[in-house]
Amino acid sequence: MANDPIHQFQLSTIVPIDVGGLNFSFTNSSLFMVATTVVATGFLAAATSGRGLVPGRMQMVAEQAYEFVAGTLRSAAGTEGMRFFPMVFSLFMFVLVANLIGMVPYFFTITSHIIVTFALAMLVIGTVVGYGFYKHGLHFLGLFVPHGVPTLLVPLVTAIEVISFLSRPISLSVRLFANMMAGHTALKVFAGFIVSMSAAGAVGVAGSVLPLLMTVALTGLEFLVAFLQAYVFTVLTCMYLNDALHPGH
């Protein structure tokens, strides 16, 4: 068990809840979702409580996060995109804090479960579709019919565009989930090598320095991936929201 690289992703029930035969149990995943929300909210509340004209360190981080998300949203979806700022900022902070909490040893990484990232992606796509139809009505469907295509090919191209659109939540969720899961598994595998090699006598102990170095390097890489994936998720969210705002450009 100590050497099983997949064990870290297992769910365990903390408080069993059963509603009409459906399992609504409070699991370790739920616990870390609550922790993520509490940490993100608590950090931002603490950081902005001072409201100094000259920001302190914490306020600086919070302001940078704001500026960064606002800049990304403005450049991808224009100034009208700012009406989605609360949602995009919440998503960014949730994914980022969840990824970073997952880097603490023995902690659970909620973004390494595809159902969690898929739910986040469906939230984004649901907003895009809902707002697109609310704002543009049936004109929103024009997104699927490209200009300048021969009439004969329009049904085929439209079908491809629709499938391409439907594949967005999948690729959005798979990207985040695959990065987090692959990284954490690799980290665990190399850490496991250290233990098994040092069990093989003095030569093994000397040799186990190599996987130890690899583990250290991978830990650094994982922190980079944690930030990068939160960023990628945010950028793609902004790009998809742009389609809802300007389906015809």
């Binding site: 391409s164 439907l166 594949s167 967005r168 999948i170 690729s171 798979v174 990207r175 695959a178 990065n179």
Partner: peptide, 13 residues
């Protein structure tokens, strides 16, 4: 990662 996820998503859907 991005390109492969995009491609696989299309085929899976």
């Amino acid at each position: 990662m991005r390109l492969s996820a995009d491609f696989i998503a299309g085929v899976v859907v």
